[in-house]
Structure formats: structure tokens, C-alpha cells
Amino acid sequence: MPFKVLEKKELGNTGTLFEMILDTPLIAKKAYAGNFIIVRVDEKGERIPLTIADYDRDKGTITIVFQVVGKSTKMLSCIKKDETILDVVGPLGNRIHVEKYQYPVVIIGGGVGIAPCYPQVKELKEAGNKIITIIGARNRELLFWSEQMNSISNELIVCTDDGSEGIKGVVTIPLRELLKREKISIVIAIGPIIMMKNVALTTSGIDELPKVKTYVSLNTIMIDGTGMCGGCRFVSTDGNVHFACVDGPDVDGHIVDYDNLIKRSKRFSNQEKKSLELYDKECQALNKLKNKSFS
């Protein structure tokens, strides 16, 4: 049975970021921070893995946030409130480890990765932790959820690459300051691979900074998400193979071979480009046809 979109809104101000609240009572009951779902828009669609951005067990809903990057996410973005998504399955992957740490927890979200940080902040805060949240984006148009992040964090630091909001520069700038300022128990980073790589490097004990346990959330290419296809595998620096769908998606940030991860994430970039171009052409042709029939 298809799944209803209860709410949909644009985030930021670029027409590429969207938030959706889905009617998924079974998934909402079992969801935790760290879990992801897989959606398929229509009969010919891809299976798209998306990390859960919030859940409401009473209302039976989960929230997803996504950025339009290819055909599938574009099609997803065309679904309106009260319309349906053909398939939604989950919650998949492992929930994050939650405990009361001795020192503050730093949670870093970059770009669309800000969204999955939200339930992590919530659950770790509920467990009694002091949370310092850093959110970053290229510019203020791509920033979102600053207020709701602020309301559940003990401290919120905002940064943008171009300085249009908050600190000018990348998330590791305030992170370095924090590491110098006080003792930190763990760091969690969700965002572009390059950002996670730099966060993990910053916390690895370089430049006389303390080494801090760091978790990153991997959004690798996958099909089933249930430990069957093996597409989501990644290698650690010691050469061992792991599977993001059943061993993650949140993993020890200090063992990941990020350079390989970046290369693997581009496996289908040619096909993805072609697919999007074709789709855009189709949409244009369809619009022309519509305009004609109205005139």
C-alpha cells in the first residue's frame, strides 16, 4: 500500500531542499536516530536510501529531508502534500549508541546532513548529555533548521562557506576551537564525505589537539539495504570490508578510507547525469504540451 505524504515544505531558499512528513505508523514505532529508510517513487523508480530526520511515535510519522541531486530525488520532490510514495521500507541500519557521557558531545551537520543530526541531538540530550551542535552550509540559502537545532542544543554554532551567516568557513574551524576550549567525549559528523573526512582528521590527534572518538554516517550506494546486495561495502584503512547497511550507517570515523569512499560514490555519475538530462527534457516537452493545450 502506498504511503501518504502528510506535510511537505521547502527548506532554505534554493528550490532544492525539501522536508516531508510521511504516514508510516509501523516505521515510526521502531525508528531511532541513525536508522534509515528506503523509498521508491514509482514502478520504474530506484530505491533511494534516506536517513530518518525525525519520528513521532504517537502520530505515526517519520520526517525525511532530501536534496535534489538526480532524477529520483527530483521526482520525489515533485510529490505534493496528500499524494503518495509507492514504497517506503524501514527502519534499516543500526540505531546510534546512546549513553550519558562525562563531557559534552559535539554533533556536526553539513548541508542536507543537518537533518539526520536532529534525532541524534534529541536522543543524546534526553540521555542527559550536554550537546554542542555545529551546522554548516555553503551559504545561508542552503541553511535550515537553525532554530529547532538551537532549541534542543546547549550551544549552536552556525557557519557558512561564504560567511553569509555565522562564522565564515568550514565546520572544522569552530570544531578546532572547541577541542582547544574544553574536553569533548565524542564527535558525530553527518554531511558530505569530504566534510566527514576533515572532521575525522581534526579529531584524530593532529596539531596537538586531543584525539576524540568520532562517528560518521555513511550514505553509500545501496539497493536492498537489508544485507543482501553488498553494494554498500566500504573498506577501512586496515583493508577490512564493512557493509554500511548492516554494520552502519554510523561507523567509527577514524577507520574509514574516505578517498575510496568518494571514488565509490561516483560509480554511476555518468548514468545519473544522463538520466537527469532525459528527465528534464521530458518535463520540458510535457510542459510545452500543457501550455499548448491551454492556449
Binding site: K44, E46, R47, K71, C229, F268, Q271, S275
Partner: peptide, 19 residues
């Protein structure tokens, strides 16, 4: 799985790519 379940052999009519 790409080819059979997701019909990637009919890409780009079907959205799942295959190398």
C-alpha cells in the same frame, strides 16, 4: 539485483543504473 529486480537492463526507461 540491479538487472533483475530493478530492471536496470532497461535503463534509462527504468531509473536504476548498471555499469
Amino acid at each position: 539485483t540491479r538487472s533483475n529486480l530493478m530492471k536496470a537492463y532497461e535503463f534509462p526507461q527504468y531509473d536504476t543504473p548498471i555499469e
